[in-house]
């Protein structure tokens, strides 16, 4: 039974990665940039599903929030300031294609040394201390150790990071708001 489920999960993973490749090729071939932005959103959703299948829900969630959410909006905002059609490249694309192929091959070569997925002997599973793996279920009552470490064992650290990002966002909003109000006052409009 367990091996059947393993096979099914592997099949779904392979299909998701196939869809990922198809989407990437479609983004590259697309000349309509609005459509390319939509396809990039789909790419992010596919990537997030794949990461979730690899039992990395925190990374998957960040990918969905940043990739499918914020990046889509930022790219659309950029399109509003520029144009929605990309020009045909004037020069040959052989050089960039060769660089991308070589980089991809080097990255794939790098994965050869990595431990098998879910290997209990991998450094990531043995190094900090195996007692985290043993205690998490009892201490935190959630099955994912990484999420338990991020959200509970080092929860104050994560809270600090969130506060920093939140403060930065608020500051940017205040700066933008201030500059807009000033231009309106100079234009002779009634001050709020």
């Amino acid at each position: 039974m367990s091996s059947t489920v393993d096979l099914e999960v592997q099949t779904v993973t392979a299909l998701l990665l196939t869809l990922l490749c198809v989407t990437a090729l479609a983004v590259v071939r697309m000349r309509n940039l609005w459509a390319a932005v939509m396809l990039m959103g789909i790419y992010s959703f596919l990537g997030a599903s794949w990461m979730l299948l690899l039992d990395a829900p925190d990374v998957a969630f960040t990918e969905a929030a940043v990739g499918a959410g914020i990046s889509t909006i930022l790219a659309l905002a950029t399109l509003a300031l520029t144009t929605t059609r990309s020009k045909q490249p004037a020069r040959s694309q052989a050089g960039p294609l060769a660089i991308v192929t070589v980089t991809g091959a080097v990255l794939m070569y790098g994965t050869v040394d990595m431990p098998r997925f879910g290997d209990p002997e991998a450094p990531a599973s043995t190094y900090p201390h195996p007692s985290y793996v043993e205690r998490t279920e009892h201490d935190i009552h959630i099955p994912n150790v990484v999420t338990a470490v991020l959200g509970s064992y080092r929860g104050y650290d994560t809270l600090g990071e969130t506060v920093v990002i939140f403060t930065a966002g608020i500051s940017v909003l205040l700066l933008l708001q201030g500059s807009r109000r000033r231009t309106r006052d100079e234009g002779g409009g009634e001050s709020p």
């Binding site: 939509m38 789909i42 889509t72």
Partner: peptide, 22 residues
Amino acid sequence: ALVRAALGPTVFDRILALNMFG
């Protein structure tokens, strides 16, 4: 949904495809 997002033809086909994909 991916095919619809790639083929279009209108903006709202693509937005619907993205929503559907989510």
